[in-house]
């Protein structure tokens, strides 16, 4: 559905936001683009949507070039931006109707009603946007993006700063859209969101697309967790009897760190705790932490180095 070849973007400031990105997104899939702030996610999306001009490379949407055939590509795309950019003085209905017209579609009240009902906005269609909560404004942006029945939907950090209920609603909506054949590309910081939603995941860092994988395969790599055992008495060195767990002694010997994969059937944690007891090593607390995206990037980048 989307074919990106050798795409680079260097801003006037000299910042190279994208470095020779190649990516193919399949029709009807949910593709999650993961990356830290400044990785190039929004630049990539903005180029496909026509907001940012590429420096080099080619992007095609459904076979159409985004520069030469921009009408064909843009009319197929809906974009939900990261920031809550809305016309505060407009009503929900008028802003959604405006978006539909802007994207070249004839008025269709029935479609707009369906979109607003799906997003629980129907009762507020006559409300001015300025009177809505942040979550509702986010829904309005989604409604605007869906108003012209796009075949491709970009969701740029759709759940940043939204409550749990809205997050769940959005995931449900995205699934429904996928079932109707819409290709969805979402950027996110949240690994669990990518895990919940995506068919495939791309990882981007410092303008480079460092990995594109099927979700199941990638999540196995991303699913690492860390257990920290806070000992009552610090250790000078690791006992040999704990050698099989590949532990690290941290914080002047006060903490034991153990990295494990939560997807594995046997994490080795119960055995480790039993062994600590056998060795008479008392602990005052246990703490588990999921690998942060940053940890994962460091690992992915170092793997490639």
């Amino acid at each position: 559905m989307i074919s990106i070849a050798n795409l680079t973007k260097t801003y006037a400031s000299g910042l190279q936001a994208l470095k020779r990105v190649d990516l193919d997104i399949r029709k009807g899939e949910i593709f999650a683009l993961l990356g830290p702030n400044g990785a190039g996610k929004t630049t990539l999306i903005s180029i496909v949507c026509g907001i940012v001009t590429p420096s080099t490379g080619e992007v095609r949407v459904d076979g159409h070039d985004i520069l030469r055939e921009y009408r064909a590509t843009r009319s197929r795309i809906g974009l939900v931006p990261q920031e809550l950019h809305t016309d505060m003085f407009e009503t929900v209905w008028s802003t959604v109707a405006f978006s539909r017209g802007l994207f070249g579609c004839a008025p269709n009240a029935a479609h707009l009603e369906k979109v607003l009902r799906d997003l629980s906005l129907w009762d507020r269609r006559h409300h001015k946007i300025m009177t809505l909560s942040g979550g509702m404004k986010r829904r309005v942006l989604i409604a605007k993006a869906l108003s012209h029945e796009p075949q491709v939907l970009f969701l740029d950090e759709p759940t940043a700063g939204v409550d749990v209920e809205l997050r769940r609603d959005m995931w449900g909506l995205v699934r429904k859209l996928r079932e109707s054949g819409v290709t969805i590309i979402l950027t996110t910081h949240y690994i669990d969101e990518a895990e919940e939603m995506a068919d495939r995941i791309g990882v981007i860092n410092k303008g480079e697309l460092i990995m594109v994988e099927e979700k199941a395969k990638l999540m196995k790599k991303l699913g690492k967790k860390q257990l920290t055992v806070h000992l009552v008495e610090p250790l000078a060195r690791l006992p040999e009897a704990l050698g099989e767990w590949n532990l690290a002694l941290k914080n002047d010997g006060s903490d034991l760190e153990y990295n494990f994969n939560e997807k594995d059937e046997h994490t080795g944690i119960p055995e480790l705790l039993r062994r600590l007891g056998d060795l008479g090593l008392e602990f005052k607390d246990l703490e588990t932490r999921e690998s942060s995206l940053e940890d994962i990037f460091v690992s992915l980048v170092s793997e490639r180095a």
Partner: peptide
């Protein structure tokens, strides 16, 4: 100023 220009720039309007 409000940021809504994104919609105009991404629309199929010459």
């Amino acid at each position: 100023f409000t940021g809504t220009i994104y919609e105009l720039l991404s629309a199929p309007v010459s």
